[in-house]
Nucleic acid binder design. Structure first.
Lengths: 132, 132
DNA sequence: TTCATTGCAAAAGTTTTGCACGTGC
DNA sequence: GCACGTGCAAAACTTTTGCAATGAA
C-alpha cells in the first residue's frame, strides 16, 4: 500500500492525510510487531527528528478511533497496536515478550444475552516455541 | 470464606498471612466488581486509615503471582482484579464501565502449535442491557 | 483562508523504589 | 530472631493538556 492509497483511505474515514499519520500507519502496515507508543515514536524519530511523542499518541488514537488500528492490551502496562483488523487472537510470550497472531473461531458467549457486542479480543500468554 | 480459611489458603501458596493481604483478598472475594488498584485502596482506607497504596500494589501483585487473582486488562489504562479464577470471559460496557462475567468455551487456536499456553483471556466490549 | 493537527513544554497522574520500622512465623 | 511485609516519601515514568505555529483541504 503506497502513500497515495493510504491518503485515499484516510479521506474515506474523514481523516486529514498528514505526513505524520501516513508515516505512523505505514510503519504499522509494514511491521507486524504490534508496537507500543514508544516503539513507534523511536522509529518515527529516526527519519524525522522533529516528530513529537504527542503526535504519536494523537495519530495512534485517531487511527484506532476510526477502526484502522486495533489496540492490543495484552501487555501489562502499555497499549500495542495492530494494523490487521480482521478478527484473530494474540499470543504473548512471557519470556521474549513478542506477540504472535493466531486464528481462532469467535465463540458463543452465555450470560450476556442481548448485550450489544462491539469488539472481541482473545489473548493467550505462555511460552513460544523459540523460548521453550 | 472466613479469615482462618484465607490464612490457610495463603500458607498453601507460601504467602505470609498479613492482615492487609487478608483484607484485600476478602474484599475481592466479596465484591465481584473487578476493582482496580485505587478502588481497592479507597475501600481498605475506610476501615484502616494507615493502609498504604504501596501495600495495595504489593498485595494485589502477590495474590496475582500465586494465582489467587486474575488480572483483567480490559480497561484502557488500569488493571482490574478478579478473585474468580475459573475460566470465563469479561464484557466491558463502554457506557457505564462495568465489567460483566460471561461463560464461553475455550476455543481451538491455530498458528501457535506447540506453544505452551499458560493463560487465556477473552474480552468483549460494547453496550450492556441497562445502558441500551 | 480556515480549522484541524503538530510540536514543545508543563502538568497531571500512576507506578516504582529506597529505606526505616513493624510483624508473622 | 529473622526475614519478609508495610508505610511513607521521593523518584521515575507515562499520558494528558495548553497553546502558538504550521499546513492540508
Amino acid at each position: 500500500m503506497n502513500t497515495r492509497d493510504i491518503a485515499g483511505l484516510f479521506k474515506e474515514k474523514g481523516l486529514k492525510a498528514t505526513p505524520q499519520r501516513i508515516a505512523v500507519y505505514s510503519f504499522l502496515l509494514q511491521n507486524h510487531i504490534h508496537p507500543d507508543v514508544d516503539t513507534v515514536y523511536r522509529s518515527m524519530k529516526k527519519d524525522n527528528p522533529s516528530f513529537s511523542k504527542t503526535t504519536v499518541y494523537n495519530c495512534l488514537q485517531a487511527l484506532a478511533d476510526c477502526g484502522l488500528l486495533i489496540p492490543v492490551r495484552i501487555d501489562s502496562d502499555k497499549i500495542r497496536y495492530d494494523a490487521d483488523t480482521d478478527f484473530h487472537g494474540h499470543f504473548r510470550c512471557e519470556k521474549c515478550g513478542r506477540i504472535f497472531d493466531f486464528k481462532c473461531s469467535e465463540e458463543k458467549a452465555t450470560g450476556i444475552d442481548g448485550f450489544k457486542i462491539n469488539h472481541k479480543d482473545v489473548y493467550y500468554s505462555g511460552i513460544c516455541n523459540c523460548c521453550k
